[in-house]
Design a binder for these strands. Sequence first.
DNA 1: CTCTAAAACGTTATATTATTACATACTGTT
DNA 2: AACAGTATGTAATAATATAACGTTTTAGAG
Lengths: 135, 135
Amino acid sequence: MTKMNKERSLSKNQQIILDLIDKSSEPLKAYTILFNVQKKGIKAPPQVYRALDKLVEIGKIHKIESRNAFVACKNSNCEISKATAFSICESCEEVDEVSDTKLSKFLSKFNDKKGMTFKRFNLEFFGLCKRCKIK
Amino acid sequence: MTKMNKERSLSKNQQIILDLIDKSSEPLKAYTILFNVQKKGIKAPPQVYRALDKLVEIGKIHKIESRNAFVACKNSNCEISKATAFSICESCEEVDEVSDTKLSKFLSKFNDKKGMTFKRFNLEFFGLCKRCKIK
DNA sequence: CTCTAAAACGTTATATTATTACATACTGTT
DNA sequence: AACAGTATGTAATAATATAACGTTTTAGAG
Ligand SMILES: [Zn+2]
Ligand SMILES: [Zn+2]
Ligand SMILES: [Zn+2]
Ligand SMILES: [Zn+2]
């Protein structure tokens, strides 16, 4: 019976950092993470960046490129971060992962005119969230 | 007769930097730009970043967020950088502005479930360009 | 269990990207 | 001329990210 699940057991540093990001209600920056895990023995940037790289690679977290910040994936079926979309409030900086079947289908099927083969995309929407619109 | 056109005449630094980006066949990073315009009297990062900010604001250039680099807008009608899409080759780093009516319509009309109002989006596709696929 | 290769780790130093802060100069309008 | 808004020049520093090493841990093959 071959091993079917890709459940990778995270390393200690990876788990510490994922836990922190997971608990956070907002995107976390690498150095904010660093300051918050120093008590757990993670003392230097490379340790943080290595864990972040791996977590991104396996789809546990995503990087919000326009903010240089990281959020946990809420979408259990995007193990491979190959199709990501976010909504970002330019006022309060709230970030949500957009999960819309039509959208992801449309984009996954999108074909470039110049013959590029797409493996992955990242989409960031900017605007005002409900709360910030009222103000 | 009120002034109808929004043609803003660029300042000296803005023009120098736009010229450089315009001539480049690849995305330029801020410090690459800095090194290349020092002979023209632009000596420090803030001068570059200020010009870049303004050029992005008026839609003459776009920032490729995943690369921290800037490209000239090839699309005469995206004066306001509110709907941008790029294809990025992960092998040779070639970047092209995707100009597809269906895509931009679809995304511009996209409505968030949580009631956010979108003013702008940025989409980056990653993959392999024609040439890099062959290799 | 032992050996090995891959992955993860710890550490120091450094590279790269971006902003703050402040003083000065230019531009167009009233 | 006076004013407001935009742009400039400059020095210092903040924030983000990687290079380079050597060591340790982990997981799988034999
Ligand atoms: Zn996700
Ligand atoms: Zn908001
Ligand atoms: Zn454009
Ligand atoms: Zn290529």
